[in-house]
């Protein structure tokens, strides 16, 4: 496809069928049209595919690239932890390894970050702990986006009574602090796995997305192309998923990316408090919790899982920030 700045390609298509009068007008107009297009350039730049522009913008941001590399690394770590370490994160040797200090010569080895109070390799536990955090983060975000996106869409599209009912329910959920609500919910389960935590956080977190989605749908619903679709006789499904959703999804993606970091932090907090994940599961939150008993004698036991957690949360929030800046033309 020719570059869109190639104004030559904008010359009207010469064609025998159309009346001579009309075409005479067109050809005479062609020169003027080229210059007249100029004032529209700003508008066209803005209208030029939002995602294309955002991507071009993002590729030049070092912060975005750094966070993406970090996130990719963490995801690979979550899926294939054995590729990063040979050590078994559950092997506990209290005789030889009790609180052994980090050994920087043992590069990528079991003793690299030292051993914790149960004689387990901290490096191996940091690597294996990524799985719980990433799983919780991604699945909670996915669940919240689907649930909140659908309810927000329905509320914004139908409006009136439907909107009033959904918005009040959202308000009620919004009033429950995420952490407190999760504490209460998770307390009801005797055995808690990653999926119980995902469920609890999703049930409490969908309202944020629902609000954003509702607002975006309310704006897009008014636009002429949706009215044009209705005038053609398009059904609800077509209007929602072909016209409204693709144009309303940008703010939702931004909020979801930023929230992802928050869910990981919440999971770690819950695990730290002893109400999130439980011990056979390896989680940074659990390790931080058990490290506090030896924080004075062996601060490195706390440092490594805490650093991993901070880096992960930061990476997601930075990526979300960069995406928001790229998608918001006002910030350009």
């Amino acid at each position: 496809m020719p570059d869109i700045h190639d104004e030559d390609s904008f010359e009207p298509h010469p064609k025998p069928g159309i009346s001579r009068l009309d075409y005479a007008g067109e050809q005479g107009m062609a020169v003027e049209q080229e210059t007249l297009v100029e004032p529209d350039v700003a508008k066209r730049e803005e209208a030029r595919s939002l995602w294309g522009d955002a991507w071009r913008d993002l590729r030049r941001r070092p912060i975005f690239l750094l966070s993406v590399v970090l996130i990719l690394l963490l995801v690979v770590m979550a899926v294939f932890p054995w590729a990063f370490t040979d050590a078994n994160p559950r092997k506990a040797d209290l005789v030889h390894d009790y609180l052994r200090r980090p050994d920087w010569t043992d590069f990528f080895g079991a003793g690299w970050f030292g051993y914790d109070a149960q004689g387990r390799s901290i490096y191996a536990r940091v690597v294996y702990g990524a799985r719980a955090s990433i799983t919780v983060g991604i699945f909670v975000t996915a669940a919240v986006t689907v649930l909140g996106g659908l309810t927000g869409m329905v509320a914004g599209y139908y409006g009136r009574a439907v909107d009033a009912v959904i918005s009040r329910v959202v308000d009620i959920f919004f009033g429950i602090p995420l952490l407190l609500g999760a504490l209460v919910l998770l307390n009801a389960f005797t055995t808690r796995t990653v999926w119980t935590v995902v469920l609890a956080l999703a049930v409490l977190g969908w309202t944020q997305i629902a609000r954003v989605m509702r607002g975006a749908v309310l704006t897009v619903k008014q636009s002429d192309y949706v009215v044009a679709g209705r005038a053609l006789g398009a059904g609800t499904g077509r209007l929602m998923f072909r016209h409204i959703l693709p144009n309303a999804v940008a703010p939702v993606i931004v909020v979801a990316t930023i929230a992802l970091g928050g869910y990981i932090a919440t999971e770690a907090t819950l695990s730290f408090l002893g109400i999130g994940l439980q011990d056979p599961t390896i989680s940074w939150g659990i390790d931080i919790s058990s490290a506090q008993k030896v924080i004075r004698t062996a601060p490195y036991v706390l440092f490594f899982p805490a650093a991993a957690l901070s880096a992960t949360v930061l990476a997601f929030i930075m990526m979300g920030d960069a995406v928001r800046d790229a998608l918001d033309p006002k910030l350009r």
């Binding site: 508008k43 209208a47 939002l50 002429d224 192309y225 044009a228 005038a231 016209h243 693709p246 144009n247």
Partner: peptide, 13 residues
């Protein structure tokens, strides 16, 4: 059928 006023907003981008 209908033709709309603003050609910038009446076509789905």
């Amino acid at each position: 059928q209908m033709v709309f006023q603003d050609p910038y907003t009446s076509l789905n981008p």
